[in-house]
Design a protein around this nucleic acid. Sequence first.
DNA 1: CTGAAAGCGCTTACAG
DNA 2: CTGAAAGCGCTTACAG
Lengths: 345, 345
Amino acid sequence: MNDSPRASAALGAGSPGATQSDLARELGVSRTLVSLALRDQPGVSADMRARILATAQRRGYRRNGLAADLATRRRTAVGLHLLDARNDIYSTVLRGVQEVVTDAQQRLVLAVDTAPGHPDPRAVDALVEANVGVIISTALTGSKDDAVALNARSPLVALFRHIAGVDSVYPDDAAGTRLALEHLLGLGHRRIAHLTGPAVTGYTTRRDTYVSVMTERGLTPEVIVSDGYSREVAAAAAADLMARPAALRPTAVMTHNDELAFAVREAAFAHGLAVPRDLSVVGYDNSRTAGLTGVELTTVDVDAPAMSHAAARAALRRVAFPAAPCVDQRFEPSLRLRSSTAAPV
Amino acid sequence: MNDSPRASAALGAGSPGATQSDLARELGVSRTLVSLALRDQPGVSADMRARILATAQRRGYRRNGLAADLATRRRTAVGLHLLDARNDIYSTVLRGVQEVVTDAQQRLVLAVDTAPGHPDPRAVDALVEANVGVIISTALTGSKDDAVALNARSPLVALFRHIAGVDSVYPDDAAGTRLALEHLLGLGHRRIAHLTGPAVTGYTTRRDTYVSVMTERGLTPEVIVSDGYSREVAAAAAADLMARPAALRPTAVMTHNDELAFAVREAAFAHGLAVPRDLSVVGYDNSRTAGLTGVELTTVDVDAPAMSHAAARAALRRVAFPAAPCVDQRFEPSLRLRSSTAAPV
DNA sequence: CTGAAAGCGCTTACAG
DNA sequence: CTGAAAGCGCTTACAG
């Protein structure tokens, strides 16, 4: 019952929140002194500092980080703007960002856009109202001008997208797409479709590159658009594709992300098609699920953990040095070969 | 270039942040009036209100929610304390909570405990310093006393765990475990092992029930402990189990969550065992991954989306009515039969 | 080394 | 309907 320091401290602390004023009053010193001591700033005698710290400890003092930010006129919290947390890749992002931000003892405020393709200004607004000093966004689906304008008001880190004039951490999507496509072409596929999300600005490199590569090779590109980026939403578009007669069906599908690839797989199975025998599927992201036995999705690995760490560090840097030059960090993707692809029969 | 209202608004807004004082000065009125008008409070003439709103709009005024909270001495933000965001189930929780919190126009502050089993007080402290009004925690791995003490300082909503005296939203784990076990027993399994996470207080109902049920039936329970709850960390324990000679190996494994079940599957495959022919596996959570073709994990469905919504509503209620009676919401799990279980050979 | 004053952006009584 | 004053919990010059 008494073996847990946290429990006893909490119990001893009594009701909510002693403030610096409370401590100052109890010790008969000024609030300034308390503030200085608590932050380990110079200008306090060792003796006084020790007394203040001890009292703070005993009273269970907890600093109000928000009030401190307000007084400082600094905004130190990091905002994270996610597209749809159900995608595996965003869990990875969340974890990566959280690790770095927590290490730096900073706050992480979250906003999730639930309607991808129709970016919700409320999500970003909420972050701005929460007074964050920087926003890491994986959901910059607007124009570059929009992003640059937003960046001018509230610093931005674009994750997974490159925007000149804004801190950007992103994969080389042209290279990644080529990798995937060349793999399929090398296998002998010619009817290769591309399943992508809603036609939002930004994040179009994968699609554009797909079209270019196909055209270069004298092949006909076919872009299928899903209403969203989650496997649930994409189910309809995938089902339509699989319902075609064999002659009109692609022999391979490359998707904008792994979630869409899962939708294609499920649709294929539902139509009695085997993967990769009747259909090759290659995803994009190398999410954790892609590697499970029984799934084994060939996919483009963008090293999401590394990119998330980089984005978080860029965010922290931006908060610390508002005038620092823009970060422009491009990651080279690699192809992760698994068993969802094979030569067409 | 000019078709986006957001872009033009942002561009027109100029540099960071007009405050209420700025608006008041520009209009030659008091700050009180501006504050009232902006919050749509009574006591402002329609005319004045319109002028204030228009100016706010034009200047790109953005309310500082933190300063408002400070002035009000109210804490309205919701803190979410997660165990390890990589588990599918936590993505679902995050999404569910976010939906409800966003609808209520509230802030969501996040903390993730990366070292489950060794709960990190920093994570909760960070939330408290962020001045949240309530913390939804899926990671209450301490004693009930600890939780009750914490609750006294900063309101808590226990998600996935029942703690008397604290708002709790949780599955009936005894029933869920029985469902899973009876399914395996009905299939004819007798050597059934249970894979669980680190021996932390809390979240022990599944394990305890497993032991009870096995004992009731005159069978020998065998609890295997993994160092953590993620598939990566559990790989070692799962590999040990699968490396046993067939006679000592269980014919079925029931796990504390789906992540651990995935670890068991992979270990089984790595040892040349087929699921369910050589080994039946039943998970717990019905995460999204469990339903993928090729995975098809039999698992206990706890309806995580519904529980997350309930937890978020409980949190909002607690912020609005600090003295409200405790929520105690128990969900009945159901068994989701898929193809990872079969009769032993 | 210590303290009194002013202010961050907001809201809440209290007067007029 | 409108405004002057005080305060939320903190920090930052500025004096002594």
